[in-house]
Computed example of a mutant assay.
Amino acid sequence: MYYHEIISADDKQLPVKIIIHQGPDTNIPRHWHRSLELSFTLQGSIDDFFIGDRHYKTKAGDLLMINSDQIHSVTFPRKNRIEEKNQALTILFPYAFCLKYIPKFNYRTFAVQPTKEMKEAREIKRLQQLLTELFQIKINRTSLSELKEISIIFEVLYWLCLRASTTSSKKIHLNSQPSSFEKLDEILSYIQDNLKTNITLASVSDHFGFSYNYFSRFFKNNMGIDFSSYVNRSRTQEAFRSINENKFQTVKSISQKAGFSNQQSFIREFKNNYDITPGEYIKKLRRLS
């Protein structure tokens, strides 16, 4: 059983999620998410990075890409978790962000060549420099850190699209995944396209020809979250992005555009996800502008 992870952007104006790894290493069980993920090892190594159907061992300078919906995990031997001082950086590009900024995202596959095959290439060195700089910015904060982070994120994304991706004439389905994932991906795409409508468990199960009870079990078993909670969280993420794009909206209009029928439900969901109410977050952004 693999668990599904819902990726949200950082609780700032940053449109992606950045994770700094240093100190004691922790195993990450097999899971999947719809986001595009980039892993960069700065120091030490990752003993077993499983992606799809392959196992990788990284060293300092290595980069790995995890495509949308691809099953992956990280495993460290017990002794290495204590003895070796590792440093790594993970960037998660949320699915909606990828759809907005990456042309033909659902028809694109990403892969970074092993550095031993490209160690003399200026292009890979530039990407390593950008990610090292991003790592340092996350540790040593200044008043301009967020601005620089955004600049680096889009340069990294441009590099990946230009030099580390290929496109297909057909929508990408990764063969290493169970067949049920293809149907689930279709369902999630349908939900994403209809978030602003009165989408319900009954309407989606009917659209895909499932019984209500079967679809309810199928969704929760594969996503680790019930249908209503997933829809509300996805709508909240859309609202978060909408606020960052335009901080002069009202809470009511944001709630309605995100697909919430009840403003209080929206405020409660937003607070649960971001530890701040939408009204407070809007005021915060206005003060910073």
Rank of each mutant, 00 (worst) to 15 (best):
H4L: 05
I6N: 05
I18T: 02
I19V: 10
I28K: 04
P29M: 13
T41F: 01
D47I: 08
I51L: 08
T58V: 12
K59M: 14
I66N: 00
S68P: 05
K79I: 12
Q87V: 02
I91P: 00
P94G: 01
A96F: 06
F97T: 01
C98Q: 03
K100M: 04
T109I: 06
T109Y: 04
F110D: 00
A111W: 03
E120Y: 12
R122V: 13
Q129R: 15
L134W: 05
L134K: 02
I139R: 13
N140I: 05
R141W: 15
E146Q: 13
I150M: 14
S151L: 15
E155P: 06
C161W: 10
L162H: 11
K170A: 13
S176H: 06
F181I: 11
I187W: 03
I191K: 02
D193F: 06
N194C: 06
N194W: 03
I199Y: 03
G209C: 08
F210A: 09
S211Q: 11
N213K: 15
I225H: 07
S228K: 10
S234K: 14
Q237K: 14
R241E: 14
Q249D: 12
I254S: 00
S255G: 08
S255P: 01
K257D: 09
F260E: 01
F266E: 01
F270K: 02
I282W: 09
L285T: 10
L288E: 15
